[in-house]
Write a protein that binds this DNA or RNA. Sequence first.
RNA 1: GCGGACAUGGUGGAAUGGCAGACACGUUGGUCUUAGGAGCCAAUGGGCAACCGUCCGGGUUCAAGUCCCGGUGUCCGCACCA
Length: 860
Amino acid sequence: MDVNSEEKIKENRYDFRTVEPFWQEEWEKSGLYLVDEDSKRPKYYVLEMFPYPSGNLHMGHVRNYSIGDVLARFKRMNGYNVLHPMGWDSFGLPAENAAIKHGVHPDDWTRDNMTNMRGQLKSLGISYDWQREVATCLPDYYKWTQWLFLQFFKNGLAYKKQAAVNWCPSCATVLANEQVIEGQCERCESSVLKKDLEQWFFKITDYAQRLLDDLADLPGWPDKVKTMQENWIGRSEGMQINFTGAGGEELPVFTTRQDTVFGVTYLVLAPEHPAVKRLVAGTAYERDVDKFVAKVQKLSAIDRMADTLEKEGIPLGANAVNPLTGEDVPIWITNYVLMDYGTGAVMGVPGHDQRDFDFATKYGLNIRQVIAPSADYDPAAPLTAAYTEEGIMINSPGFDGLPSAKGREEISDYIEKKGLGKRVINYRLRDWLISRQRYWGAPIPIIYCPVCGVVPVPDEDLPVLLPKDVEFLPSGVSPLNTSKTFAQVQCPKCHREARREMDTMDTFMCSSWYFLRYCDPQNNKEAFAKDKVSYWMAVDQYIGGVEHAILHLMYARFFTKALYDMDLLPLKEPFANLLTQGMVLKDGSKMSKSKGNVISPEEIINRFGSDTARLFILFAAPPERDLEWNDAAVEGCYRFLNRVWRLLSDIKTQIGANSQEASAKNKLNSTDSAERNHQQFSTQHSALNTGLQSSPDKDARRAVHSMVKKVGEDIGARFNFNTAISAIMETVNTLYLYRDKSARPDQAILAEAAEKLILVLAPFAPHLAEQLWHDYGNEGSVHLQPWPGYDPLALVMDNVEIVVQTNGKIRSRLQVAANLSREELGQVIQTHPCLPDWTEGKEIVKLVAIPGKLVNIVVR
RNA sequence: GCGGACAUGGUGGAAUGGCAGACACGUUGGUCUUAGGAGCCAAUGGGCAACCGUCCGGGUUCAAGUCCCGGUGUCCGCACCA
């Protein structure tokens, strides 16, 4: 390749290697994306889930932030005061694991990663207000995480209790319920064990009903996510019925099928049920029962939940009294009853519950039918499986003949009247276990005093700094124990020698309020000022992966509600609208190092530039859908940007003389709202429109204006960025044809087209658009311009093609005037010379005319 | 088992109930070129054709990829929840 041709190619191309870094620097220098509270403009808070600083950006990040950036830029151009921040979810296990593996301190490792990823983010040119950057691992952030913990504590929402908790043996720490996936650790996939430990919990269960009810106030959330939260909260209405065991042992059970209480033939307890020991103490059953309990407890969570696990049980040799019938039924324990749901005791109704049926069949327990499928059903026929549907009550003295649903109500009333139990609502949701026996997290700001007991760290002593002199090899004991200085502290109340809490907080605590800190990131007096939060919150559009549907999104909702109750926040829901983006796949599966199918964003940016990377990722699929990475298609996007570049460069040369006029026009627009801008364009160009004689001119202009309309709607109302981009591509194609094929392309139309193209491209390809904007002689950033308007008159067509169908089959196409009414269009068909051909001599039954679209002649 | 989403060319994907396959990738042919991994032009659901085509089977409608009923398949979430 000689020098000349190299230069020639360079000349005709979008030189992203120069253009992109240049504008990134300019934008940063001019503080283009910095925002403040501004009551004159409506606010818009667009937020992407902040990343864990793992070391490198991956394509999922690029997708997430590209979606957010299009919205941020679009809203900005539409006159909104846009808050678009970025930060780091920077506490967590990977830092410790890296420290163990490579001998670096988690703090250094994390900071290096943040530096590296910040650089990568900046090379993407996302419009963040970097002055609002937060990192959860920095003392000026976690000080407030600790402060918030204390607010929860002081309001009775944080408590410590001994409980059987999830223990990951490999991470050597406890896990929240939500972090156990199919019995395995969410992080390392080790089998999770149950361990009896004293741990800190947040009372999220107090908010179960509100978390459930308020989902109805979130129309801007995907149903999928709301359903997942609904299932996770798992509300079920039922009844607690008080059975009584031998020796007066109270054995309440929880059931949702009170109508089957006459069918109870045994009672089952969870092996861990506290009554078990008492009931068998000193009996012949004691040894076998102990053995059985030990066997069940040894099973890991995953084994205990496995489908294949056989239902096993053992009798306790004791009976319980059914309070309704006065009948004695045997008490068993079994591996299929859970201690931590309901009361840990279940009534065995083998006639109407399949598990009970299997169990009773296996151990020869009685099966009694109390619900018949219909009134004429023969109850004498033996059941071959449990009948679990609704039906008619039988063998239930006093309630026979009632439909089961009605029977449920009457039995509930009866039980409550007699004081034998009560209606209760059970939730599957458990309290949130927030303490961790790991190093890289915010220390829990609690002091244990031998005299005063559990004492919160006073506000003025915050933050409780994470010590650096710590051995963080997982040992099962909190690593903070290994610090020489950390534990020792004076009791804030009595000043006696006391000890600090050694556990750190779950990192989900840190991420449950970061969106509030962005509103007021530098405040060193409070976590956030109420007026700033009132101005910016709620987040208008939240964007992130669906993998956070339960954990993060539920905790953040819980925090918001709790802070609302403490009068720290003016709102009950943090995220008004939620967009869950799909994954980025390669060869059909998620990109991962172990599969070796990772495409690094850095590499793509180096080869094609960030505008190309962003354009591809937005064009390849709608945002909620999974996206298959395709190298060739990326190149296609790169070619498109060059096509735009060449077209607009050429037009610029052609209309060079007019460029001053164009720039004057833009100065005029630059301070207007989109609405005014819209009207302005209409009046400005209606003269242009009516002056057009030939149809290629009109067509070109229509293409441009309908593109503006469609792109605005696709971004603003539908989040269909892929179709917005395709509309721009179509218009570019049309303009190439117009310029090359029409006899005398109109300069004014080309100038207008160029300007609008640059403006609609700005959210998608911000660097290219900015460069072109300035090449056209405009002042100021393209990203501060009002979103272009369109001229409704330009969209009007003189003629349209309509389709002629008979019985739904296409016969012909006709050019007709676009403004024909339904009747006129019918007339045209009725009198058309081809009518006999279309109807083939058959009788016309009906004629359906849809103006502007089609005519369907129904014949027989 | 329960709940949810989805199913359209070789591929990614378009279609307020109104011309299925926009836009793009890929492929093929042409053109320019010392060269082409650049650019431009053309073709591209299947079938020689009439026609047939949106997972399968019914239905509603003048008209169904789209709405309704019943299946199948794929993916996701929860899962011994009483």
